[in-house]
């Protein structure tokens, strides 16, 4: 039972991180129908920025708690800036181009960013400082759930609630929903579509950065390659939930996180990444619209 709970909370933690990344995928896809391959890289850049800022602050002798907050904030700011810039440079000039062009541009951007971080920083694994404090009251849970896992799960829940409220009630949120439904219509009723698209990239990137810093601090090391696998899995989560759907991405991430945790715990840990992939193929075969997604007929 204890082992089961340990796996369960491990899965919950994974699922939370996938959710934070998957939201970015799903929001961008919802609005411009593009798989933003560079999104995993934004997550990685968020983690790196967090590491760098934390390193500087620690060297300057800041206390742990404020280091975490500042590092998180910086990570969010820079990741958002990268997300914004990537859209302006690699996707915006390609609106209305052939279907394959933005996809290839996205892949190129992803390759570029990985190598950019590798060359400007390092290709080795970097130890990430333990920023999340150990709470005394978590000790009674023993090994089933650690403090950092709790922090990750709780912050993800808060972020998801915040995002849902934002999309539902703010003006920008409504503009995003309108643009996702029908871009031309949105433009006609006076929504600044370029701005909405930029905002989507900024928000998605910020969420990914939060995920990046939290998980890096939990696992304790990062390198330039972490965005690649995390990206594929978060995308799987988004498809699982129904791409384009925000609650779907959260649910899909949860399902994927738990599946992976139990599969690696009870079956084999060598093939950790294989499970996610098999799940992806299975959903695509049996329910391409995902759990929460609606089958959309393309207008002809």
């Amino acid at each position: 039972m204890e082992y089961f709970l340990e796996l369960f909370f491990g899965g919950l933690t994974r699922g939370s991180i996938y959710a934070l990344i998957a939201l970015g995928y799903t929001m961008v896809y919802g609005i411009i129908e593009l798989i933003n391959f560079a999104h995993g890289e934004i997550y990685m850049i968020g983690a790196f920025t967090g590491l760098i800022v934390a390193g500087v602050l620690t060297a300057l002798g800041f206390p742990e708690a404020s280091t975490l907050v500042i590092a998180l904030m910086c990570a969010v700011i820079w990741a958002a800036a990268y997300g914004y810039t990537v859209e302006k440079v690699a996707y915006k000039p390609l609106r209305g181009a052939q279907r394959l062009s933005p996809l290839i541009s996205a892949i190129g951007m992803s390759i570029f960013l990985q190598n950019y971080v590798m060359l400007s920083q390092t290709s080795d694994f970097l130890p990430f400082p333990e920023l999340i404090p150990q709470f005394g009251f978590m000790e009674r849970f023993g090994s089933t759930m650690s403090s950092s896992e709790m922090v990750i799960v709780v912050s993800t829940i808060l972020v998801c609630i915040g995002l849902t409220l934002f999309i539902k009630f703010t003006k920008l949120g409504k503009a995003m929903r309108a643009t996702a439904q029908n871009r031309k219509m949105a433009m006609l009723v006076g929504i600044n579509v370029d701005m909405v698209i930029s905002a989507t990239f900024v928000i998605g990137s910020s969420l990914a950065a939060v995920g990046g810093v939290l998980i890096a601090s939990h696992i304790g090391q990062i390198n330039y390659f972490i965005g690649f696998i995390a990206g594929i899995k978060a995308f799987t989560a988004a498809v699982l939930g129904g791409i384009g759907s925000i609650p779907g991405a959260m649910l899909g991430a949860l399902v994927l996180g738990l599946t992976e945790a139990f599969a690696t715990g009870y079956v084999s840990s060598d093939y950790e990444d294989v499970f996610a992939f098999c799940l992806l193929v299975l959903i695509l075969i049996f329910r391409p619209a995902g759990i929460m997604g609606k089958e959309k007929t393309q207008k002809v």
Partner: peptide
């Protein structure tokens, strides 16, 4: 804008074990 963007990654390099920058 790009100076700002590339500032953390291009300029700073930290060593989190020895706490040097």
């Amino acid at each position: 804008w790009f100076v700002f963007l590339t500032f953390p990654l291009m300029v700073i390099k930290v060593n989190t074990i020895e706490n040097t920058v």
